[in-house]
Design a protein around this nucleic acid. Structure first.
Lengths: 334, 334
DNA sequence: TTGAAAGCGCTAACAC
DNA sequence: GTGTTAGCGCTTTCAA
């Protein structure tokens, strides 16, 4: 692997001059710079980020931490990657193991040792955040309601969930079941709150039995829906706290011999790619992933540049995506 | 961030002794070691991998390169993560941008600068491999037929695809359509070859029109299936080169007013998690992801340890998973 | 505009 | 069993 020293030697300049040239910094004459760049290119010089980082420099690398095995997070990560590349940064991803296993404290340290900053997609809260706070690297979180202690980006879960309930109500549904998410996450709590608020606001059927505990997972959604269907008076529509739960619910509904949407309307949240591809296609609330990714990257870059943006919370709007799983009560498709 | 020097100072030993203790190497008395470990723990010492790597040491970090946005690759990556953690390594992932963009040469360099070795999940071949060869770091590939120039792990695509065709034939299908994968990948070519071989071997209907070009993507599968359905004599069953294509095919079949499996049997390949969750659940060929991941990690560790395993190709068996989308020709479910 | 010196945190090699 | 020395590849600071 060619080093800066070799480039410098061939060019007949000092290492420092080569460094300046390669990093596009002032203090090198046009001619020298061109020559150095030519040589670097020729011998295939690539900066060693470990060394850069070690000597206090920047690596143009951002780290991302998240639970890769949820469809939503994967999508978000890909969007962050695009956003990063768009501003000439590369992205390295650390996938958190299953919930709560091994203190991820040194994971941030790990990334921190090679990256300029880290974006954390919070899988769960409190305990995790505490360990992060010790880290002395720029951090931006996604999916955290309070911008404390890090700047955060989040979709407007509350407004989005209201949209969902409103949509079902507009279709004539008065008895709407809700499948909760993993309530350790603020997003899950916000969506539930919106559901409850709308229910009373619109004079829909109340009752705790209409709220069924899920966990953002497929299986949780399946079981939650089963409980809803077993009610003396089952709902005519179900709002699942995320798309994945909605898929689980769909399976349960069908197993009960009912059809979606003719016998039971269904609406999800997130708009993961799969939602559109399902049959019938899932009506849902879209989170603005590309915008969220860009916002997070921008926040992070600002912090890296030293422009402190402490306690900033960026909330991005969600959007109702009407597809095929929610129709007029007692109605037929179309 | 506490450094080794601080640990050493507090413990009243040299940096080297602290290093030996922390890395669990011989040459330190039990007592000293315990004391050093205690202190390290207390002040929250975490080894700086950049420095470790720079000074020629090992980081206990493996890198993974792949296109994260395909469901199959994501699954594989998660399995690699588990396999790595099981042997006390951490994993960092680099997600390749869309096909062919930006020479990924320095991506390997990037990982190479912080990791002990890299597992590459080949998204496409040739051009990519060439740039990898320059790298002087242990590399293991997945999904590459020739173990050249790197050791490789691969599922037995040929045998698996034979299983699929055999299954359909056993169910009485004589006219079986095939949706190809992205044939830049060896796995796609192997599956196609198996389909063709079995077709003649079992005296099934031949004809190039039964082979429809796909690309391993949902949309490609959708369009390929459409062409198959538009044939004067459409097939009674379709074998899609992977699950994702099969999903696309299912949409096309339904849009044509046909039912799966009553009017059209369907079989996929990979057995991604979604396959089981679909409705009806997809009959498919399972790739042994956990085993593949373990094999790749083991190969890599062997190389890191200096036990060269050049030109080794590990082929793992695939398995038919019977679910609901393939039934007897003209038959009814059950 | 350029260069020399020092050091980031760590580990190999060699002393003792 | 322990310490010393040197150096990985780079960037900072300061000097020319």
């Amino acid at each position: 692997m060619p080093t800066l020293a070799e480039v410098a030697k061939i060019a007949g300049v000092s290492i420092m001059t080569a460094s300046r040239a390669v990093n596009n910094r002032p203090g090198v004459s046009e001619r020298t710079r061109d020559e150095i760049m030519r040589i670097a290119d020729e011998i295939g010089y690539v900066a060693n980020r470990a060394a850069q980082k070690l000597s206090g420099g920047q690596t143009h690398l951002i780290g991302v931490i998240g639970q890769l095995y949820t469809g939503f997070t994967s999508e978000l990560v890909l969007n962050i990657g695009s956003a990063a590349r768009a501003v000439d940064y590369e992205m390295l991803v650390y996938s958190l193991p299953a919930e709560n296993r091994s203190p991820p404290g040194n994971v941030v340290d790990l990334l921190n040792q090679v990256a300029d900053g880290v974006i954390v997609i919070l899988p769960y809260e409190s305990d995790y955040l505490a360990t992060l706070t010790r880290s002395h690297i720029p951090i931006v979180t996604i999916d955290q309601t309070k911008p404390d202690p890090f700047p955060a980006v989040i979709a407007d879960n509350y407004a989005g969930a209201r949209l969902a309930v409103q949509h079902l109500a507009d279709l004539g549904h008065k008895r709407i079941g809700f499948i909760t998410g993993n309530e350790r996450l603020a997003s899950a709590r916000d969506r539930r709150r919106a559901y409850c608020d709308m229910r009373s606001q619109l004079n829909l059927d109340q009752g705790d039995d209409l709220i069924s505990k899920g966990d953002f997972q497929q299986k949780g959604g399946y079981e939650a829906a089963k409980r809803l269907l077993a009610l003396k008076r089952p709902p005519t529509a179900i709002f699942a706290a995320n798309d994945v739960s909605a898929f689980g619910a769909m399976t349960a509904i069908r197993q009960a011999g009912l059809r979606v949407p003719e016998d039971m309307s269904l609406i999800g949240f997130d708009d993961i790619p799969l939602a559109a591809q399902l049959h019938p296609a899932l009506t849902t609330i879209r989170q603005p992933l590309p915008q969220m990714a860009r916002a997070a990257v921008n926040l992070l870059l600002a912090m890296i540049a030293g422009i402190d943006a402490p306690s900033q919370l960026i909330t991005l709007p969600t959007q109702l995506i009407v597809r095929e799983t929610a129709i007029k009560i007692g109605g037929r498709v179309g």
